[in-house]
Computed example of a mutant assay.
Amino acid sequence: MRNTGGSELERVHDALRPVLDPELGLSIVDLGLVGAIARDHGMLSVELLATTPACPMRETIHEDALQALRDAFPRDAIEVRASALAWSPARMSDGARRALGWS
């Protein structure tokens, strides 16, 4: 599987930006929950991180992300899966840190 190029990466982030973490009310992109993005033979694969290993909203976030990607890439097969990477607040955008009062 190859990593996606810059413009496709931006399109994926743009598609996922409206997807919110329901508990925090912030974009999963700004929270740094979007991990590896790859494409292989028409399959767009996106890994999502969770803020905690037992995140109760993981399934909801994955379903919302899958729908957003299907809407943005209607001709592609889409796979959204859990990342093995650990999330940390360092992955958040400056705007997300400000919204949470962490800056």
Results as ranks from 00 to 15, higher is better:
Ile28Met: 13
Ile28Tyr: 14
Val29Ala: 06
Asp30Leu: 10
Asp30Val: 09
Asp30Thr: 11
Leu31Trp: 07
Leu31Asp: 10
Leu31Cys: 11
Gly32Thr: 14
Val34His: 00
Val34Asn: 02
Val34Ser: 01
Gly35Thr: 07
Gly35Met: 08
Ala36Trp: 04
Ala38Glu: 14
Ala38Gln: 11
Ala38Tyr: 03
Arg39Asn: 07
Asp40Ser: 12
Gly42Asn: 05
Gly42Ala: 04
Gly42Cys: 01
Gly42Tyr: 05
Met43Gln: 13
Met43Phe: 12
Leu44Asp: 04
Leu44Ala: 04
Leu44Pro: 05
Glu47Phe: 08
Leu48Tyr: 12
Leu49Gln: 15
Ala50Pro: 00
Ala50Gln: 14
Pro53Gln: 06
Ala54Asn: 14
Cys55His: 14
Cys55Leu: 13
Pro56Ser: 11
Arg58Trp: 13
Thr60Gln: 12
Ile61Trp: 11
His62Tyr: 14
Glu63Trp: 13
Asp64Pro: 01
Asp64Leu: 07
Ala65Met: 06
Ala65Tyr: 04
Ala65Pro: 07
Leu66Lys: 09
Leu69Asn: 05
Leu69Trp: 04
Leu69Ser: 04
Leu69Tyr: 04
Asp71Ala: 01
Asp71Glu: 08
Ala72Asp: 07
Ala72Trp: 10
Ala72Ile: 09
Phe73Ala: 05
Phe73His: 05
Arg75Lys: 10
Arg75Gly: 13
Asp76Tyr: 00
Asp76Thr: 02
Ala77Trp: 01
Ile78His: 03
Ile78Trp: 01
Ile78Asn: 00
Val80Asn: 02
Arg81Trp: 04
Ala82Thr: 14
Ala82Arg: 15
Ala82Glu: 14
Ala82Gln: 13
Ala82Val: 10
Ala82Asn: 07
